[in-house]
Amino acid sequence: MRSFEERKTEIFRRSEKIISQNRKKRKFIAACLSLFAAVSIFSLTLIPEMNSKEEADNLPETSTSSVRFVTVQVKAYDGSFYKQFDDPNTVRELAELILQAVNANEEQATSEAAETDNIANKPDDSEPADNKSNYIIVLTDNSGNQTTYFLNGKTLIRKASGEIFILSENQIRALKYICDLP
């Protein structure tokens, strides 16, 4: 059996070991908690951003517009033709077609508009001089806002700004096909 001094030394040696082990445990737990907190904060900030980005990507919308169109009306000036499209796929197709033409031809259209007489005169609701193959295309978005274009042959004119865009043969053909224009 140990002497008093031996016992005392051993007691304090073991108590120091216990204190040291407890200190290490506390540090480990603190590190785990910090890591957990960091991961939680990171997830909470990052995941909503990812979700909103995904939602934006999944929106049935044109590449340039953040607005979502819900209907497209196509009518002839002389009243001989009228059609309204509500089907989401058809609306999207038409909207994309028109906006593709607008975006692709924006610079070209503005320079061409400067050479023609149309740039000085903002068109209004009155009929253009040539009624043949003239249509009014109205796109309505989910907020109820409307964008109106005049289709005159190969020319597409934005009513609000008077900008003119030239459609390609393929675009005309596609437009006539989708809208079932005569």
Partner: peptide, 19 residues
């Protein structure tokens, strides 16, 4: 077992000193 008993007693006192 006296030696084991002494060892356990040391653990008890170490516990008292540490906690």
């Amino acid at each position: 077992d006296l030696h084991i008993s002494e060892d356990i007693a040391i653990d008890v006192f170490a516990d008292l000193a540490a906690h």
